[in-house]
Computed example of a mutant assay.
Amino acid sequence: MRLWPHHPVHLIFGLTVWSVWFVVLYGGLSIGCQLAPPHPDQGPWNWLNLLLGLSTLVIVGALTWLAIQLWRAGGQLEGTGRYICLTSAGLYGVSAFSTLAVALPVLFLPPCI
């Protein structure tokens, strides 16, 4: 089944992805610190932060791609379809920014302190 750009599910999907990513990021951090904690002397440059950082970039890339696609699709529609596309594009953008903001400590802090 193909979801059309003006489908209302786009209004909640971006923030849902962000909230699931929030749980996965900090859950994965906790599990990684419990099973194989990196040495604190490594600072933020260790295998756990690298894995979480790369995963974050994948999620941000997907959310940004969706935002761009819906923004473009919204320019070709009128009425309610246009509203849903443009609002969803904004929500995907906010979700991408929020995903980066949540993962920002991965760049600066050692994970298991």
Rank of each mutant, 00 (worst) to 15 (best):
H39V: 02
T16I: 05
G28V: 01
E78C: 06
L29V: 00
H10S: 04
L25Q: 05
M1I: 07
G75I: 06
V102Q: 11
Y26M: 13
L70D: 03
H7K: 07
H10N: 00
I68P: 02
T16S: 07
A62S: 04
L54F: 11
L107I: 04
Y83Q: 09
V23M: 12
L109Q: 08
V9G: 11
L66Y: 05
S19P: 03
W47G: 02
G27K: 15
Y26E: 14
V23E: 10
L50D: 05
F22H: 12
A96C: 11
V20T: 13
V60A: 14
L54P: 04
W18G: 03
N49M: 05
G90P: 01
Y26R: 15
W47L: 06
L29Q: 06
G32Y: 01
L11M: 13
T56I: 03
V24S: 03
G28K: 05
L25F: 01
F22E: 15
A96E: 11
V17P: 00
L77A: 12
L86F: 02
V17Y: 00
I12H: 10
L104W: 09
T80W: 05
W65Y: 06
Y92S: 00
P110Q: 08
C33D: 15
H39C: 03
W71G: 05
W4S: 05
L104R: 03
W71V: 01
P8F: 03
G61Q: 08
E78A: 11
T87P: 07
L11F: 01
P38W: 13
W71Y: 08
L51T: 14
S55M: 13
F97C: 04
L70Y: 02
C112W: 06
S55G: 13
F97K: 05
I59F: 13
P5V: 07
N46C: 05
C33W: 08
L25M: 06
Q76M: 13
Y92T: 01
L107S: 06
G75E: 12
G32D: 04
L15S: 12
E78D: 13
